[in-house]
């Protein structure tokens, strides 16, 4: 994906590489995502956040589940895993526990993370395991044709709620914060700088971090609910987005046409899973304890040290 359309022609402008490109599998482009879809926007933010942190891309692993956002892993030029539906988090848990030197990012959609994988989401937050979870929430099941999701606001028309949804939707920041997440944030695909910054923060801190990015599905959700195209949605995100850092988490419900509360809601220090495990076993077993990360630990500590300014 070179910026130059015709390499033979004399360059009228300096040729600029898209800085995100180094993190993309260009040989897999174009992506499957529709025009106006917000997932690509979040990927752009993610790539830029990676650059900003200066993190060694060799040590960044991305894990997705199934769905449109589940395809993100496949487009990232990183060690990448496209797992089963809902199970990106437990897969990532295994990766992280086997090698804490890895920065493990879970990148998936609302259906995958919060519905079929909801239990894993809760338990990963409870354990405060050091995963960076990006949940692109388009309020529907897109890949399967736009059915109602656990996140679909009331009255929204979907393929399986043709008369409008009547189930109350999940409030994801509230859920993961209650379960114990140490970082919780929500933005929309209109808020690209904030999204990027939130990703940057997640990449450089320890503990279970969760970012929800509200994102349009123009092909299904927006169309069925007469919300216009991608651009119209950006306008609505601009108008409806209400930045309230540290907002009362119970007030974050998504509604049709209502305010979208965005911001950084939770940032707290809790011992993460690995710290708790190592400290506890070492205290109990003393010199009998064989640290599984004897060699790996020094390496990862070094990296975190370098990054702590992020």
């Amino acid at each position: 994906m070179s910026a130059s359309l015709n390499p033979a022609a004399p360059a009228a402008f300096p040729i600029c590489e898209n800085p995100a490109e180094q993190f993309l599998r260009s040989d897999r482009m174009p992506s499957i995502w529709c025009p106006g879809c917000g997932i690509g926007t979040t990927v752009n933010c993610f790539a830029r956040a990676l650059i900003k942190t200066g993190i060694d891309p060799k040590k960044v692993v991305i894990v997705s589940g199934i769905g449109c956002t589940g395809r993100v892993a496949g487009y990232m030029h990183l060690d990448s895993f496209h797992t089963t539906h809902g199970r990106a988090i437990p897969f990532a848990t295994g990766l992280k526990l086997a090698n804490p030197g890895l920065t493990v990012v879970v990148y998936s959609g609302d259906g995958d993370l919060a519905s079929i994988g909801g239990n894993h989401l809760i338990h990963a937050a409870r354990r405060n395991i050091d995963l960076k979870v990006v949940c692109v929430n388009n309020l529907t099941y897109s890949m399967t044709g736009g059915q109602a999701a656990a996140t679909t606001p009331r009255d929204a028309i979907t393929a399986t709620s043709p008369y409008g949804a009547y189930e109350p939707p999940l409030n994801l920041p509230h859920l993961v914060a209650a379960a114990g997440a140490s970082y919780v944030s929500r933005w929309t695909t209109y808020h690209v700088v904030q999204t990027m910054k939130a990703m940057e923060r997640m990449l450089t801190r320890r503990g279970f971090s969760f970012l929800e990015v509200i994102s349009p599905c123009p092909t299904l959700f927006q169309r069925r609910n007469r919300l216009g195209d991608g651009l119209d949605t950006m306008k609505s995100y601009k108008e409806l987005g209400a930045t309230r850092h540290n907002a009362n988490l119970a007030d974050l419900d998504m509604t049709m046409g209502g305010e979208i509360v965005i911001g950084n809601f939770v940032e707290r220090d809790r011992p993460d899973y690995l710290e708790a495990m190592q400290a506890h076993l070492r205290a109990q077993l003393q010199e009998q304890y064989v640290d599984p990360y004897e060699h790996a630990e020094a390496e990862s500590a070094l990296e975190l040290g370098e990054l702590s300014c992020g």
Binding site: F91, G94, A98, N99, N119, Y289, D291, P292
Partner: peptide, 27 residues
């Protein structure tokens, strides 16, 4: 813990059976 390794009790068998695979890919 006496040998150098990790056991984790997961939230269900779905999680256990995929967590091991994540660990396998980390070596």
């Amino acid at each position: 813990p006496l040998v150098g390794g990790v056991f984790i009790q997961m939230e269900d068998e779905l999680a256990a059976s995929i967590a091991i695979q994540g660990a396998a890919w980390a070596g």
